[in-house]
Amino acid sequence: MTLNLTVSPDFAPDHISGWFIFNTWLQRQLGTGVHLELYDCFDTQRKDIKSGKFDLVYANPFDASMLVRELGFKALVRPISKPDETIIATHKDAAIQSVEDLKPGATLVTTDDPDVNRIGMIMLEPADLDASNTETLAVDSYVIVAKNVLNQDADVGFFLKDAYDELSDLIKNQMKILVSSEISVVHHTLLLSPKLQKYASTIQQRLIKMMDDEKGRSVLESMNLLGWEAMTEEETEFMIDLIDTLIDE
C-alpha cells in the first residue's frame, strides 16, 4: 500500500524540503510507502483532493471544512501553537494609519490562500470595503505580495502571519501593519481519508510522539513545527462551525 500525502500550498518555500523529510520519516514509522505531492495552486489541489487522489492531507482551515463535511475525512492532529493568523500591511510611508482610512476603490494584493483572503476581507469590513468596491491583484507568493506593497502597486497586502514573520527585516522595515488577527482557534490540520480510518490511531500516536525523540524533533524543525497534538472530532467540528460563520452567503 502507498499512502498519498499532500500539503496545503501556503507554507513558506523554505520548508518544502522539510515536508519531503517528513515523508521519509512517516514511511519508516508506518512501514509503508508514502508519496508526497505538492502544489503551487490551491484550486488545482482542491480538484485533485475532491477526485479522491489523497489519503492524508495537511489542510488549511477552509479546505478542512470541505474535507470533513463533504468528503468524510477526519482530523488526526494539529500543529502545536500555530494558529493561522492574517496581517494586513501597507507601505511604511503610506498616508493611511488604520484600516478605516482605506476608501472604496482601494487596491489589495493577495495570494490565492483562501483563509487569509477571507479573514483579510473580514478585517476590511470596518471600512465598508468588500469585493465589490476593491480591486484585487492575485500573485503567487507572500514575497511577491510584499514586493507589490513596497512598490506601492497596491494600497495594502494580505499576509499569512507566519509568512510575514519570515520575511527579511529589510522588507518588513519598509512596511507597517494596519491590523493583525488574533483568532487563535483557526489552524491547519492533518486529515485522513474515510477509507483509511483503521490506521487513524496508529498515525495519530506516531505523530503525537514525534517530538519526544531527537530524530522526530529535527524533522519537525525542518518543517518549522514544534510538534503535533491530537484533535478530537468535536474540536474539529467546532473549528468548522466557526469558519462557517466567516463565510457570507
Binding site: 478605516e100 469590513e125 470596518p126 471600512a127 465598508d128 466557526l242 460563520t245 466567516l246
Partner: peptide, 12 residues
Amino acid sequence: YTSVRRKPSRSK
C-alpha cells in the same frame, strides 16, 4: 448554536 462577532463599520 455558535455565534461569532466581528468589528462592524461605523456606517452600519
